[in-house]
């Protein structure tokens, strides 16, 4: 492919991505308008506000404007990167989202990284040992873990290591007003890491299965390929043959990692609820129940945008890993 053609393909992909985002933005906007109630509904129910005060709020928040006008204002704001003021927090939606996103990434980045690296290595290892007892036992174990709900794994971990043994704190991201009592508790980050261990473990146990099983299957397929037989016939040591197989087998995993990363940004709502983790998942649930449109829209759109962008990046990465795609 010539540079020019590649450039043109890139531009058309960019336009495609833009259109996808517009459609998504519209669906997200419509979705929240279809839910019963609006941001003032929760206030009505508390009985703390007389109906005329609610009417004034509706006007202030411009919820009485025609739907068409509201939609156009929303799109216009999006183009300038504005998501509007959060109705509940009364702050720009992006400022509400940012700290929650950081908290989610603190949890999900290590969990995703460990799952992917661990999944690829273990999956390759299992795939190479097709038919052995280790392969059977390993595959069974991860499948069992995968079929358990993540929040259930979280609860079991909490019950064992927090409620009973008391080794780890019961949820939260840090201890407020933490006073170290022993020398090891004085180590920098000790309190924070102690809070991180259980939720990351729960997430890894849950996420590990997918990359692992994909890698295993893909490794099994790779084993039957001619180039592996050729490598073996050349008398290459097993470790090198396995490396060749692994590199080829990794392609489907890379695609899947794209999906995993976008999930990571959305956080795992249930894990966050179980561990009282102040992340995106919890914020999204709260903003939807409160009908806090700006925050909910920004959160969903952020996730959608990440899926689109990551997919784009995965395509580029594919080309790096597999020369056949680059030259096709």
């Amino acid at each position: 492919m010539t540079t020019k053609a590649r450039g043109r393909a890139l531009i058309s992909r960019a336009i495609q991505s833009g259109l996808t985002l517009w459609v998504l933005a519209t669906i997200i906007w419509l979705m929240f308008r279809l839910l019963p109630g609006d941001p003032t509904t929760a206030l009505l129910g508390t009985g703390q506000l007389p109906p005329d005060a609610v009417a004034r709020l509706r006007a202030e928040w411009r919820l009485d404007d025609p739907m068409g006008a509201q939609y156009l204002r929303y799109l216009g704001n999006l183009l300038t990167g504005e998501f509007g003021l959060s109705f509940t927090f009364r702050q720009p939606a992006t400022e509400v989202l940012a700290p929650a996103l950081v908290n989610t990434l603190i949890l999900m980045a290590p969990a995703t990284a460990i799952s992917v690296v661990g999944g690829v290595l273990l999956g390759a290892w299992l795939g190479w040992r097709r038919g052995g007892a280790a392969e059977f036992g390993g595959a069974l174990l991860v499948l069992v873990l995968r079929s358990l709900p993540a929040f259930w794994i979280g609860i079991v971990l909490l019950m064992a290591f927090s409620y009973s043994l008391g080794w780890f704190p019961i949820g939260g991201i840090r201890t407020p007003a933490f006073f170290p009592e022993t020398w090891w508790e004085e180590l920098p980050g000790f309190d924070f890491l102690r809070h991180l261990v259980l939720p990351v473990t729960a997430a890894v146990l849950y996420f590990l299965a997918d990359p692992l099983m994909i890698m295993r299957t893909s490794m099994l397929e790779a084993r039957t390929e001619d180039y592996i037989s050729y490598a073996e016939a050349r008398g290459l040591p097993d470790r090198r043959v396995r490396r060749i197989a692994r590199r080829n087998a990794m392609l489907p995993v890379v695609t899947y990692v794209g999906i995993m990363v976008s999930f990571a940004f959305g956080g795992q709502i249930l894990i966050e609820m179980v561990f009282s983790w102040p992340g995106m998942g919890r914020l999204m649930v709260e903003s939807v129940t409160q009908r806090d449109y700006p925050v909910a829209q920004a959160a969903f759109l952020l996730m959608a945008a990440i899926v689109v962008v990551v997919n784009f990046l995965v395509d580029l990465l594919y080309a790096l890993l597999d020369p056949r795609i680059r030259d096709a």
Partner: peptide, 30 residues
């Protein structure tokens, strides 16, 4: 800290000073 806690300290100048040194409200969703 949003989604985590609100930490308050006792104001000894208040006419009815609380006997505690402070109160921490944790936001625990379950």
């Amino acid at each position: 800290r949003k989604g985590e806690y609100l930490q308050l300290e006792t104001n000894k100048h208040f006419f009815l000073p609380p006997a505690v040194d402070g109160v921490i409200w944790l936001f625990v969703p379950n």
